[in-house]
């Protein structure tokens, strides 16, 4: 297959199926990179419908995909020499797991695309392979009832599809498990880092200003001289929460994300205090703020992680959010007092 892949040109027809390559072009890779660093459009879609990779025939396997371009690209780039059909379901441009959780990758949407593409006329067998992570939205037995197609859950990762098919549609226990290795966690950081940028900027602006407070009023010179310590602590807390905590996620003894973040926030503020050799009141006030920011940002990473439950996050938030608010408020008051002293 040498067909050049171009997302604009991808228009699957119900009779004329579009071919796509299992090789990614530079445009695909750059698009993916932009998504990772958060500059691309978030809904980066593939038109729903039936695609072919290689030269599939009426016996070839049918792989089901979300219509989020990154999901689709990861899938097709893992197919090398396979001749298969890809059925792209309209998941509103959202990835498999999230769209399944939200109900867009569902029994209904799979049934709908099976009907729309008249797949039963194109293949003789009655078997489709779904990504395992669509299982929270798609009920295999209902797809079977409504269409006659046996919906099999393939492996979690697209790279295991070949071995899965070769093993006679059997996944090893490892293929069924979601992992969350450092590399995957690192990929999520840029987007998460920018997520709370406005709150970060507001805090930075506020403490820049507060640095100039004095018993005599407001001193511009004092602000210019002393803003560095609070601003670095704020930034340090932010980084502790959304860069260091995710990277070292499994290696901190606590299970609650808010505590993991607080641990790194405390560590980093201690280092910053050391470097700046500030008076104790300044150190404590900014320390509380740094810890609170780190804890909050780490807690926000629960949504990006692959193993936190709603009940669990609710439980930790119940105690963590009051603490975070108290730390910020007390820290700010102490900071102002340290300026007026």
């Amino acid at each position: 297959m040498t067909t050049n892949f171009n997302s604009q040109a991808l228009k699957p027809l119900s009779l004329n199926v579009t071919s796509v390559s299992s090789r990614l072009t530079w445009a695909d890779r750059i698009g993916a990179l932009k998504m990772r660093i958060g500059v691309g459009r978030n809904n980066y879609r593939v038109k729903p419908g039936l695609y072919k990779v290689g030269n599939p025939d009426s016996q070839s396997d049918v792989l089901v995909s979300a219509n989020y371009k990154l999901s689709f690209d990861v899938l097709r780039s893992n197919l090398d020499s396979l001749n298969v059909w890809i059925l792209v379901v309209d998941t509103k441009g959202v990835n498999v797991w999230c769209s399944a959780a939200k109900g867009n990758f569902s029994t209904d949407s799979v049934v709908k695309s099976l009907k729309e593409t008249s797949l039963e006329h194109r293949v003789q067998h009655r078997r489709i392979i779904l990504p395992q992570l669509s299982a929270s939205g798609v009920a295999a037995h209902k797809v079977k009832e409504q269409t006659g197609f046996n919906a099999l859950f393939g492996p979690v990762e697209a790279r295991d599809i070949k071995p899965y098919i070769e093993a006679g549609y059997k996944a090893t226990p490892a293929m069924r498990k979601v992992t969350f290795p450092m590399k995957e966690r690192a990929k999520l950081i840029p987007v998460d880092f920018l997520y709370e940028k406005y709150k970060l900027l507001i805090l930075i602006g506020l403490f820049f200003f507060l640095s100039g407070l004095d018993r005599t009023g407001f001193l511009f010179g004092k602000m210019m001289d002393s803003h560095l310590f609070p601003l670095i602590t704020i930034l340090g807390g932010y980084i502790a929460g959304i860069v260091i905590t995710p990277l070292f996620l499994p290696w901190i003894p606590f299970r609650a994300f808010a505590l993991k973040g607080a641990f790194w926030g405390l560590s980093i503020t201690l280092v910053i205090n050391r470097l700046f050799k500030v008076p104790i009141l300044d150190g404590v006030s900014m320390g509380l703020i740094g810890i609170s920011i780190a804890s909050f940002m780490a807690m926000n990473f629960t949504g990006s992680s692959t193993y936190t439950s709603l009940s669990g996050v609710r439980k930790e938030m119940k105690w963590a959010v009051p603490f975070q608010i108290a730390f910020i408020v007390v820290g700010t008051i102490l900071f102002i007092l340290s300026k007026l002293a």
Binding site: A101, A135, T302, V313
Partner: peptide
Amino acid sequence: DCMECGACSNNCRTGAITVKTGTGCAVAI
């Protein structure tokens, strides 16, 4: 180990599994 995604209960045709599903995401909460 359970993250309450509901994949199991959704695919259990006898209704043997129940779980209150949701996404464990602080931002969403």
